[in-house]
Amino acid sequence: MTTELETIPDATIDEQDQAPQLVGLMAEYKDVDSAVQAARVVRDRGFKVWDLHSPFPIHGIDKAMGLRATYLPWIVLIGGLFGMASGIALQVWTMSIDYPFLASGKPLNSFPAWVPIIFELTILCSSLAAVAGMLLLNRLPMLYNPLFNKPRFRRVTDDRFFIVIGADDEKFDEIETMRLLESTGALLVDKVED
């Protein structure tokens, strides 16, 4: 491959970069029923790099697409434990180790009085972990997406449903996959290019 590339003049490489590359195929559906039925077909064909885009979360879509449960709750648990530990460490260290200061004859380590702040920090850190974890797992923010080149795709946040199969899926074949999508009752099947 390298030798071939070296023989191509620079200009041609640029042109190749600019030429639209097929990223995937996009099928449009008009309602939840047909989109979910199509998702089951695509799932059963064993595709891996694909997705169903919808204006709202569809109930039971995880089963229809064969998605695994997210491990987001574990991230939140870690965030919560971190918050709890930092709440305990902060108060025990500042009040009874770093600057021991007797207030109203209360013990230096007045643990019951630490509880509210431990609680608040637990909630704070788990909430931040939940949001950060969701964004991270979803690879957001991602402000550019080849799908945004398609004017039709704008209706995905309105009333249309789209199944997109990625070209880098092992089972992807431009003609075959297009036929498959057409057979699922799509309104339209289109190429997504970048």
Partner: peptide, 17 residues
Amino acid sequence: SLGWTGSSRHWVRYERM
């Protein structure tokens, strides 16, 4: 909107969050 595409894979995590 962070590049939201209504992806179902996203929705599943989003709803869990």
